[in-house]
Design a protein around this nucleic acid. Sequence first.
RNA 1: GGCGCAUUCGUCUAGCGGUUAGGACACCGCCCUCUCAAGGCGGAGAUCACGGGUUCGAAUCCCGUAUGCGCUACCA
Length: 481
Amino acid sequence: MTVRVRFAPSPTGYLHLGGARTALYNWLFAKANKGKFVLRIEDTDRTRSTDEAIGSIIKSLSRLGLNWDEGPDVDGDFGPYRQTERLNLYKEAAEKLLNEGKAYFCYCLPEELEKRRKEALKEGASPKYNGRCRNLAEEERGLLEKEGRKPVIRFKVVQDGSIRVNDIIRGEINFENKFLDDLIIVRTDGTPTYNFAAVIDDAMMKITHIIRGDDHLSNTPRQILIYEALGYPLPVFAHLPLIFGSDKTPLSKRHADVAIDEYFKKGYLPEVLINYLALLGWSYDEKTTIFSLNELIEKFSLGKVTKSPAIFDLAKLEWMNGYYIRQLDVDELTDMVLPFLEEAGFKIDIPRGNLKKIIALIQERIKCLKEVVGLTDFFFKDLIEFDQGAVEKMFKKSEAMSILETAEKKLLSLSDFNVNEIELVLRKIPEELNLKPKQVFQTIRVAVAGKLISPPLFETIELLGQEKSAERIKRAKEMIN
RNA sequence: GGCGCAUUCGUCUAGCGGUUAGGACACCGCCCUCUCAAGGCGGAGAUCACGGGUUCGAAUCCCGUAUGCGCUACCA
């Protein structure tokens, strides 16, 4: 039997970190087992689902490289892949259950239900549905219909026995039926609820392994009951621990950016997101932290997924992104960084070769691509802004003027303006003026870059060019006066 | 309230009856050094949630307790 797994987001927003990880684990499992990865859209909640969200989720998944074999935009043998296009299927299944006496119409109003629930809770009783409509006679039904009540369909849960869930990650879990109540499977408006639609789809789409978040574990016995009532074979379950924020509650926008797209916008590499997310709840051995996609396919296994929730740690993600960036070929990095420079409004009118040299200088200094902007701005601006603190610190010193004058003179005197020559002449200044190298170079740095922190000075000056460097030093001198 | 799941350095984790409890990020120090990084070396950091068992021996097995989270919706 070929392995078939699915990722089934409800399109109520963007693809978030948790969803991406669930998708990744499914995808890896499919790849490792030469199986199929299906994308299914669970949009039965029409008030919250949007087409825009579907587009956004698809875009993020694609960018992560998690391609699917069947989905809303990829034809397959088990479509359609949007639940709102499968309504007739759910209806059929519901009718079947109704005919076999495994489901029934319930006329209780939401308000009545809510009231009973509250009362039960108050008395310390279980707030489960009391089964009022379970055995309604025809005439009673007619009476309620006459009142104008629209029924929902409830699934009859046998109150004896128990359900054993065999979970790859958690092992065997036992649930007693008596704690379950008759759940609603079809709403007043005829649409199916999650527990019902998901089962029918998973069964009809021949999903063999259901890999999903821990938050669905408690729903599993209900779903198994539906599988059995409909005569479907059971899939294998694997419930992933959730991703938490620093306060140990499920990760949300309160904690950090959760939309995958936000990370792309900041310049996190897809490979890094994949690598980091893979490690958030899974590990291969005791030391390996860097995995390529192929290595993940080869090494990933559900059996090694952790049981407890993992707290999202931005610092580690940043480190990993920086690490990947450092491994990149400069040419490649330059291409990747260009859109960020353009977006910042820089006019890049220098030769590609020079641009590459600039990028090479900041390659080991950035943790995400967007940071390139703040580190290289002075290369692309005609008039640089001076950092106030830097000016205070370096230019207010009495030696500043002589340092800059000497530097300007020496730079202007060079006939061959390259790093080696530049370094050679500038290195002489500390000795000549009897000053500490640090003071000399920091002063020049502020003059040339406008701030105390920049890429290495001599390379920076070379790339700025003789004319521009001298001009900036001149301007700094004017500032001092 | 009921049911379910979880609990090893700040964080991600290794461990699956005998280890000085290992690694990574973060942190601290030193080296390198024109700043910031990167890199190298070193350090601190975990009474393995707690309490009972079982065993010659328990982070590892069993039972409780606590805490956290999830489900208990005409959300998914």
